[in-house]
């Protein structure tokens, strides 16, 4: 089975972002970039499927030259080979989906497993858009994936619990947090990943002209919360909640 896994490079999600003073973007000075956490779950799922049968996990990343590093990170934790669609353009999820669709058509995989959302933009869009553009069914926010004969049964995380959905293959699945436990990159795997193939193309080579219909005019700081107070006891807490905040 050939599985396509789109992976994104994101600023370290555990570091609080700083905005540029003019609001034009975030200050990336000194910020390290990582593989989008949700995409790690996607790679792990794909790797497990391929290990128990046969096939390959093709990682594809869209973005600047730095994405090669992201692909290498993914190749060390289950990817077979990589494809970098190189562009410095500012992309929205619709652009990403358009480029991924072009790669899909060249690779003709049996399955696509993406992350549920990028933790920088929090968009949660590209995979669903990709599925729609390709006329494929989708199973988003996967908690459990079972492959059957020409179909997949997916337990999806939804408000209120889980939903079970069956999709014909090929399909697009997105990984949620509890899908699996991604493996750590062991040193030999990191070394091996350095030698794995990474193909490079430009959007033009894929025959794609980017539409980029989303324009971010600027970023502003969210309203800060007023400083709070430390209370000395449960009694004081209850008293303040009753009489000061009036929420009890």
């Amino acid at each position: 089975m050939k599985i396509l896994v789109p992976v994104r490079r994101v600023p370290n999600p555990d570091v609080k972002v700083r905005l540029m003073k003019d609001g034009s973007g975030i200050d990336t000075e000194g910020v390290n970039f990582l593989l989008n956490p949700f995409d790690e779950f996607a790679i792990e799922q794909a790797a497990q499927i391929v290990e128990s049968s046969e096939g390959e996990v093709v990682l594809v990343s869209v973005g600047g030259a730095d994405c090669e590093e992201t692909l290498r990170a993914g190749l060390a934790v289950g990817g077979t080979r990589g494809w970098l669609v190189e562009t410095d353009a500012t992309l929205d999820s619709a652009d990403v989906a358009t480029l991924l669709a072009a790669v899909y058509k060249e690779e003709s995989p049996d399955l696509v497993i993406a992350g549920k959302q990028s933790v920088d933009t929090d968009n949660n869009q590209a995979a669903q858009m990709l599925a729609a553009k390709l006329g494929l069914p989708q199973a988003c926010f996967a908690y459990k994936v079972e492959l059957g004969d020409g179909k997949a049964t997916v337990e999806r995380e939804i408000d209120g619990g889980l939903e079970v959905k069956e999709v014909d293959l090929p399909a697009v699945i997105t990984a949620d947090l509890r899908l699996n436990q991604p493996r750590y990159a062991a040193l030999p795997q990191i070394m091996k990943a350095k030698r794995k193939e990474i193909k490079k193309s430009s959007p033009a080579e894929l025959g794609v002209e980017l539409a980029s219909r989303t324009k971010v005019l600027g970023l502003i700081e969210p309203e800060a919360r007023a400083a709070g107070q430390i209370v000395g006891s449960v009694d004081e807490l209850v008293e303040k909640l009753k009489n000061e905040a009036k929420v009890l």
Partner: peptide, 16 residues
Amino acid sequence: RPMYAGNAIAKVVLSG
């Protein structure tokens, strides 16, 4: 809309 886990509010326009 919020981005970056709510640490920034983005002003966005669509041109489709």
